[in-house]
Simulated assay, not measured.
Amino acid sequence: MINELFCTRGRSSGGHPRLYEGCGLENIWLVDGFSIIHRNGEELTQVEDVEGLHKAISLHLVRFRKALTGREIKFIRRTIDLTQGELAHQLGTSVQTVARWEKDKVNIPGPEDRLFRITTLLALSEPANFAKLIMEMPKNLDDLDEAPDRPVSFTHLSAADRGWVEAELEAA
């Protein structure tokens, strides 16, 4: 039996953003930068530049999420390529504490939260942009309210441009 592979580039059918389930987070949508692959009756999403996309998602989370969930902490930690032990060491806490944050057993306390965000910005942002992002962080976090999560969409620009960026979507 021959397995056929069908791909479509860009947006999902109907031109709507596609939920990015591969990251393990909720409310992350892709506007473009992916292919839909049909294999053995299943529809799979193949993302261009997954590393760049995960970097963009992580930067969004540390800059614009007031309280990080356990899944988000784990996602970011993996994106910046740290083990639980390495992150614990950098934040001055224990491996068990990091594990409890990632399992949503306890919330990450304020000082560790800020240091985690700074560590992430240092690992993922351009050096020339780092100081600006650090200075913006308190205002960005203070401006956020406790409203329900909103979907966040990302679009892929050419690598020569900026790679993955948060997309501005029209209201439906």
Rank of each mutant, 00 (worst) to 15 (best):
C7K: 13
G10L: 10
G10E: 10
R11Y: 07
G14C: 08
G15C: 09
G15I: 08
H16D: 10
L19K: 13
L19I: 07
G22R: 04
C23D: 04
G24R: 10
G24H: 06
G24C: 11
I28F: 12
I28A: 00
L30Y: 01
D32I: 07
D32N: 14
G33F: 08
F34H: 11
I36T: 09
R39F: 13
N40A: 12
G41S: 06
G41I: 01
E42K: 11
E43G: 02
E43S: 12
T45N: 09
Q46I: 05
D49Y: 15
L53V: 06
H54K: 14
S58C: 10
S58A: 07
V62G: 03
R71K: 11
R77I: 01
R77H: 01
Q84F: 03
L87C: 04
L87Y: 02
A88W: 03
T97C: 01
T97F: 02
A99D: 08
A99W: 10
K103L: 15
D104K: 10
V106I: 08
V106N: 08
P111I: 03
P111T: 04
D113C: 06
R114Y: 14
R114C: 02
F116H: 00
L122S: 10
L124S: 02
M135P: 12
P138V: 01
N140I: 11
L141P: 00
L141H: 12
L141A: 09
D142G: 05
L144Q: 07
A147K: 14
S153D: 06
H156G: 03
R162I: 04
V165K: 12
E166K: 15
E168K: 15
E170Y: 09
A172E: 15
A172R: 15
